[in-house]
Design a protein around this nucleic acid. Sequence first.
DNA 1: CTTATTACATACATTCATGTTTGTTTGTAA
DNA 2: TTACAAACAAACATGAATGTATGTAATAAG
Lengths: 202, 202
Amino acid sequence: MRRSKADAEQTRTSILDAAERLFCECGIAATPLERVARQAGVTRGALYWHFKDKSDLLKALRERYRLPQEDLIARAAREGHADPFGLLRDTAGDLLATFEAEESRQNLYMMLNAMVPDTESGRWLSGCNAEMFGLLQRLMEQAREHRMLTPDLEPQEAAVVLMITMNGLLTEWMRSGKAFSLTGLGLKIMCRQIDSLRAPAA
Amino acid sequence: MRRSKADAEQTRTSILDAAERLFCECGIAATPLERVARQAGVTRGALYWHFKDKSDLLKALRERYRLPQEDLIARAAREGHADPFGLLRDTAGDLLATFEAEESRQNLYMMLNAMVPDTESGRWLSGCNAEMFGLLQRLMEQAREHRMLTPDLEPQEAAVVLMITMNGLLTEWMRSGKAFSLTGLGLKIMCRQIDSLRAPAA
DNA sequence: CTTATTACATACATTCATGTTTGTTTGTAA
DNA sequence: TTACAAACAAACATGAATGTATGTAATAAG
């Protein structure tokens, strides 16, 4: 039996780990809290001590990691948009590499994608995606102003292209059972896509 | 109270309609069969008369419509692959138009995408996607043989590009609350993508 | 017209996940 | 060292969803 402060934190973490894995594997609704507790090596007592209820657990899971999208948002905000396409290329590379390496990110992504839009986490994800789209759109507007964006696409159209490619890559990679390399083929596709948005050289 | 043969079929249909809407809106696990029955204007008695249980209902929902992917598969098998990219372009157009017009398709697509991989319907969807991918790959192999495929992509790489673009489009369109036109911008993006796979003219 | 079966509604039993309460042990501060 | 609170485990109560069993009116077949 663990009682010290550090031990309690360890218990909390192992509960989160277990929930993340089980929720992703079997679905949130189909996973009773007792299975989560058992997987974490404790009883529901411990779970209810650390978390108010299931939705509170969900909230904690969300807060444990920032989504890939948030990384991109943060980075773009920090570094400015002098070279929009270069920034996109670098960021996409980081994002794909991180996603491929960290199973937790993958679990969280699957969990949230399987979420219904009108739940709290679902709305949160929608908001996150909307924010992401807004940033991409602004990036593309800057590109248009600098005559760097291909003339046959409007900025928001280019933003849609980027959104569907990135999310499509992650989703398809998971659905295919990681049948291809995200940092290999995935990045290659992403770069092709970004290049296709560049205005032809004068 | 309805009793005739035709009435029974009508009851069955309205149950399926209700389930489709509710399952898509609130999630399958979160929707008790009683809500489905109430929405359909009957009781659970009628539901259990027509369907063995929830999973049987799910199966019936799947069988009611063929997925967009299956349409493409069928069409490609019928028409042969003389002009792979032309076929893709036409098929994608049909598919996007159908999807945009029929709410039932959208509901089914959302339902299945929210499914966990290790359920029956989840596995069915995975198989469906794998089949789709196989066809695209064979199409691209033919294109390669005819020197029509861009030299910087392998056939299976091109197939990945097509998969993520199509699925990405449908998913993003739904998630954005249908913020853009599938037959407009969606088709435009799809065509751009297909054209980017063509070998440069000699 | 009778009878059997269809197409349900209603009532019931059971299971199962949840949330709560209570009990127990251990760290920790005074 | 004593007392209190943290960190759980275990038992309990509740509600909700499921599946089943029974009842019943209408239909269709003979």
